[in-house]
Amino acid sequence: MSGESIAAATGDILEVAGLSRNFGAIAAVADLSFKVREGEVKAVIGPNGAGKTTLFDMIAGVTAPSSGRITLAGERIERMPAHKRVDRGIGRTFQTLQIFTEMSVLENVVVGHYPRGHSGWVNALLRLPSGLSEERREREHAMALLERVGLADRANDRAGDLSFGDRKLLELMRALATGPRLLLLDEPAAGLSHAGAERMMEIVAELNADGLSVLLVEHNMRMVMNLSHDILVIGNGRFIAEGTPDAVRTNPDVIAAYLGEDEDA
């Protein structure tokens, strides 16, 4: 527990150290180190193919790192399976939506309460009262989350029938239902209209104001610059720059990296 108290003292929710991932001879991520402070919004930006998705997958536990450490609130998690990391407080959304289209909107968010639930298979088959009261609480909480993003009216609709923007909000609320301490957002604004992106930005800002730490991958620079306290820039899987939005905006290495991409394209 001493590790945890040290982390609490230094205020880092996530610490990544010397993280690398090789696919064959190609290093998708090479020797990355950075921290996310408690209550901070940190953005990871970089040209396409910079290794952002691989980085996210390693933090979420979908891809195993080749080397390096990932520490969540003082606890090493780089060898932990994805579902256990959710228990420890990592919530995430996906670049390509992964909602459960055949379930209702409400059910999608109720499933998100899984890490906090207790009722097991016997309870499921016999429908015991303890499971029912747990479910009632989860439904109420899920409904409150839906209300937050204006989806309460659609609670009983099939999730697959929602518009693209609503599905993105639903996925965000579903991730929130797991009770995360750190939220990984993979391109929350991608595919959204201008108004939709603004809405998403407001909601993320509110969540952050409530104390939630956020790690954000996003191409929408308006969103990145407005939301982030701190920005990490990577290219070809390597560190390029890190700093406040203003510092990063004027960093010559960053400009070069993005210009380089334009040349390739």
Binding site: A82, V86, R92, G112, P115, A175, A177
Partner: peptide, 8 residues
């Protein structure tokens, strides 16, 4: 993938 991201 979605299910795993909810701790299942």
């Amino acid at each position: 993938r979605g299910a795993a991201s909810l701790g299942i």
